[in-house]
């Protein structure tokens, strides 16, 4: 956890810093580090905010993404099935048809786990194109699974926040996919999904 394997020098790779500690000693500096004890400040900072003494959102330029308004919300049925399995095998992301949308909505299962692996991948490679490729490959696999397994219940990717949702949609669109299904946070997988 304290290591930085991608660091630029050997010291950083093992979590060490080449600091001039002698300078700090000579100037009698006091260093304090460690993880923030959030609960030590939460209540006082809350009061400062509620009584108009503290406006951090303005300082850090907070922008709220109201993502539900940007999406067309469609109620879907978990019984939706593809009309043709051949369309799936030949590259469903290139087609724009109702049957394919139904397939996607009916299909993917463990969205949370998918997103988790995507995040790890992105962090390691910093390559969004690779990420989009992985999204599509996973979705393709899940759609194929529906075709042969007939045990699929839920919805595609579960976004953990507006940023995730927006990014995933952008990536999928840039890859040419027309439809996608995204489970909202907190909804069980059998519930309706948001679909574009």
């Amino acid at each position: 956890m304290t290591d930085d394997p991608g660091g630029v020098d050997d010291a950083a790779k093992t979590g060490n810093l080449s600091i001039r500690i002698g300078l700090g000693w000579a100037k009698s500096h006091v260093f304090t580090t460690g993880q923030c004890p959030v609960m030590r400040y939460n209540r006082q900072l809350m009061h400062a905010i509620l009584y108009d003494k503290f406006h951090p959102a303005k300082a850090v330029n907070v922008t709220v993404i109201r993502w539900t308004k940007r999406l067309k919300v469609t109620r879907i049925s978990i019984k939706a099935r593809p009309r043709s399995s051949s369309s799936i095998r030949t590259g469903w992301w290139q087609r724009r048809s109702v049957s394919i949308r139904a397939t996607l909505l009916a299909f993917c299962t463990d969205g949370a786990r998918i997103l988790c692996s995507l995040r790890c991948f992105a962090r390691r490679h910093h390559n969004l194109l690779a990420l989009s490729f992985l999204v599509l490959e996973i979705a393709r696999f899940l759609v194929q699974l529906l075709c042969f397994g007939k045990r699929i219940r839920g919805v595609a990717v579960r976004a953990r926040g507006p940023g995730d949702l927006d990014r995933i949609l952008r990536l999928i669109e840039s890859h040419g996919a027309s439809y996608w299904a995204i489970d909202t946070i907190g909804l069980p997988t059998r519930q309706p999904a948001y679909c574009r």
Partner: peptide
Amino acid sequence: LNSLMTVTQAGGRLGIPDF
């Protein structure tokens, strides 16, 4: 950290919060 030590006066304090 090195630059902070350089510009902080003697006896000063340096906060290094973890995030």
